[in-house]
Simulated scan of single mutants.
Amino acid sequence: MEQFQALTLFADSVDTVQAARKMVRSALEDWALGALVDDVALCTSELVGNAVHHAIPDDRVAVPGAPRRIDVTLTKWPKWLFLGVTDQNSSPPMFSLGETSSPALVGDLSEAVLMDSGRGLMIVQLLADSLWWSLEEAGGKTVFCRFDLVGRAPDSRT
């Protein structure tokens, strides 16, 4: 059976990321998926944070003076949990194509040699079982994460 939660946020609110995490935590606890709370909440923080800091609305959806909208959806199916974060910018997210700094190459060098951006999506790629994005028909994009539920340890928090 499908279960669904959605929340519309505004990028300029002070508590945008916190509100998204709170919705995700509440839904996952209600759905007896407490074991996933930390990973999905962190992915939510990263994706919503990216939308807040980087998503400039496309010309066709921008309304002068209007707040920048971010939609967060969480959908549970028997085998999967999907997290979607929609913003008003159609530019593709900058997914990592692999390891950016080999530990052997970095050696004793300082952290200054590590990349300056893109770490958030790298974290999401490590935590989620799948990550992709899609353009929205009306403008903007949605970044999706899939978390496989089959084979995961049962929720010990409930």
Rank of each mutant, 00 (worst) to 15 (best):
D58A: 03
A41Q: 07
S117V: 08
M23S: 06
V17E: 12
V37K: 01
S130R: 14
A104Y: 12
F4S: 08
V85K: 00
R157S: 09
Q88H: 07
R157L: 08
R157D: 14
D155R: 06
W132N: 15
H54C: 05
A20G: 09
F4Y: 15
E99C: 15
N50T: 02
P103R: 14
R68C: 08
A35N: 11
G151Q: 09
G84E: 14
L121R: 03
G84F: 09
A11K: 06
V106F: 06
D30R: 13
G120Y: 00
P57N: 06
E99N: 12
R60V: 04
M1W: 09
P92M: 04
V24C: 01
S96Q: 09
D129S: 11
A51K: 00
Q18S: 10
C145M: 10
D87I: 01
C145R: 01
A55R: 00
V124W: 01
I56L: 03
I123T: 07
V143P: 01
G65L: 15
D116W: 04
A62Q: 04
G49K: 00
T75E: 12
A153W: 04
L149C: 11
L149Q: 13
G84L: 03
L97S: 09
A35P: 03
V52N: 00
R69L: 06
F4V: 12
K79Y: 08
T142N: 14
H53S: 11
M122Q: 11
